[in-house]
Simulated scan of single mutants.
Amino acid sequence: MEKQDGCETAQPRAGDRGGVSDPWYDALASGWGDVDGTGAPAPAVPAQPVPGQRSAAGIYLEVQRSEAFQEVRRRYRRFVVPACAVFFTWYVAYVVAATTAPGLMAQRVTGAVNVAMVAGLGQFASTFLLTWLYVRHARLRRDRPALELRWDTQEMTRGIASSASKNNSAHGEGGQW
């Protein structure tokens, strides 16, 4: 790089295209750097849905409104809401007891171990227990239906993606690829 009049100018190296060594330089995203006939930036035009053809957004909304999706959500909520309420109550009870009942928390259980230490270790144990219960619940009650929904959604959108790429290449919008 050489400096001339305070401006930096890049000198092209051998093998560079236009002085830029980035292999993706020519592959700009649609609407980025496009110019109209006058040399001014071209306005970005959103993709228009083809009449009679489903869009990906429509498919995702359809899946979201389906009974199968709502059942997966219900199963999730039926576990998470009570579990969070129980865990939060247990945590707040520990903090409140530690601040308002120091005599209770200082009582010895055995040797140098007191109630506060047992309750504190119980916090860790309950965190691991809750994590195990959540993973087990997800594996047994939600993973299979969610995976089936995901598979069905991908199958529905796969047809859109392949027809959209065919339309783009037919219109000359497919780029270099």
Rank of each mutant, 00 (worst) to 15 (best):
G172K: 14
A42Q: 02
Q70W: 04
L121D: 13
V50S: 12
A14V: 06
G15N: 06
W24A: 08
A68I: 05
E2W: 09
A44Y: 07
S165R: 01
P41C: 02
A29W: 03
A97M: 03
F88P: 10
D16G: 04
R77V: 15
T153R: 15
T9Y: 11
W151D: 12
G103R: 12
V109I: 06
T99W: 06
V20A: 09
D22L: 00
I59D: 02
E67S: 02
G19H: 01
E71G: 05
Q4A: 08
L104T: 07
V80K: 06
C7F: 14
T110S: 09
P12E: 02
M1K: 15
R65D: 09
G58V: 11
N114P: 09
D152H: 08
N114H: 06
V81C: 10
G58T: 12
A170I: 15
P145Q: 13
S21G: 06
V35N: 04
T100A: 02
L147G: 13
P51F: 02
M1D: 05
P82E: 00
P102G: 04
R54T: 14
G33D: 01
D36V: 12
G6N: 03
S55D: 04
C7R: 15
A93K: 10
Y94W: 04
P82M: 04
A47T: 02
D22A: 00
L140I: 11
G120Y: 07
V86F: 05
R139P: 14
R139A: 12
V86W: 03
L28V: 00
V35E: 07
E148W: 13
Q11P: 01
S30M: 08
E155S: 15
S126T: 03
Q53I: 06
M156Q: 11
A83V: 00
A27R: 02
Y91R: 13
A125C: 01
S66H: 02
D22Y: 00
S165I: 07
A112V: 15
A47E: 09
A106C: 04
G15F: 03
P12C: 01
T38F: 11
V113W: 07
N114K: 09
R54Q: 15
W177P: 01
V63P: 10
Y76Q: 13
V50G: 14
S30N: 07
E8L: 11
A161P: 09
A119N: 04
L147A: 14
D152F: 10
G172S: 08
R136P: 11
S30R: 08
C84S: 08
T153G: 14
Y91E: 15
P145M: 12
R142K: 11
Q176L: 08
D34P: 05
A146Y: 11
T9D: 13
F88Y: 13
E67G: 03
L130Y: 00
L28R: 12
I59W: 04
F69T: 06
S165H: 07
P49K: 02
A119W: 01
L28S: 08
P82V: 05
R136F: 03
R108Y: 14
V80S: 11
A93Y: 08
G174I: 09
A57S: 11
G31V: 14
C7I: 12
M156I: 13
L121R: 07
L147H: 15
T38Y: 10
A161D: 03
R17V: 01
R142I: 02
T131V: 03
T127S: 09
E148Y: 14
Y76S: 13
R13I: 10
A98Y: 02
R17M: 01
S162F: 05
R54W: 13
V35G: 08
A138Y: 07
H137D: 00
G111Y: 03
V50F: 07
W151L: 15
